[in-house]
């Protein structure tokens, strides 16, 4: 089923077309949710809410960009809305003193393949993780992030700086990144089983 056929079917509320669209995009979107969520259950709840919005608002898609990008934006906003409902989240994005947090090496995932980076991102504190996800992966500006999370732009910048430093530290400890002192070079270590 082509993307156009899926879209046309979803506009008719056709269950088969909705199933096809869900099957095509849900694995990647669950990956997005998983980066924001505390655990898989929460991620699936976010995904569920996001796809309900997608199907309910499908008529608003103008074919002006990629369908996946449109779905992804809805899913990301859904994740943020879910997180904002959680009091812990609003506390965590405001804390500046979180810079003292470090990740112990034994807490870092020991089995690494293509998804190890995501697991390392998820080890970050909630506020750090959210800003890093939005800035480095989803491509939002700090200003946009500030509006989305109801925080100052400067707070977003500082959160990201600390999140990046912490993530680098984790990745270096796991030898996924090598960072010589004289210049920043990112090298992915080939995995032993690849």
């Amino acid at each position: 089923m082509t993307e156009e056929q899926m879209l046309a079917g979803c506009l008719r509320n056709d269950a088969a077309s909705q199933d096809a669209l869900y099957s095509r995009f849900s694995p990647r979107m669950l990956g997005v949710c998983y980066r924001f969520a505390k655990n898989r259950e929460d991620a699936e709840d976010m995904l569920q809410e996001g796809f309900i919005k997608v199907f309910c608002q499908i008529q608003q898609f103008r074919n002006e960009g990629a369908l996946e990008g449109w779905i992804r934006r809805i899913v990301v906003h859904t994740c943020i809305n879910v997180l904002k409902k959680n009091k812990k989240f609003s506390d965590s994005v405001d804390i500046v003193q979180a810079s003292g947090i470090s990740v112990r090496e034994e807490n870092i995932p020991s089995i690494m393949q293509a998804k190890e980076v995501v697991e390392c991102i998820r080890l970050l504190p909630l506020g750090y993780k959210t800003v890093l996800n939005l800035y480095a992966i989803e491509g939002y500006s700090h200003k946009e992030i500030g509006n989305m999370l109801d925080i100052e732009e400067s707070t977003s910048r500082s959160q990201y700086t600390r999140a990046k430093a912490m993530l680098e530290d984790v990745l270096i400890k796991k030898r996924i990144l090598l960072k010589p002192k004289d210049k920043a070079v990112t090298v992915k270590i080939a995995m032993a089983n690849n």
């Binding site: 849900s26 991620a43 293509a114 998804k115 980076v117």
Partner: peptide, 9 residues
């Protein structure tokens, strides 16, 4: 890395 990450709900 993140774009390559997929999970099956």
């Amino acid at each position: 890395q993140s774009d390559d990450f997929r999970m099956y709900p």
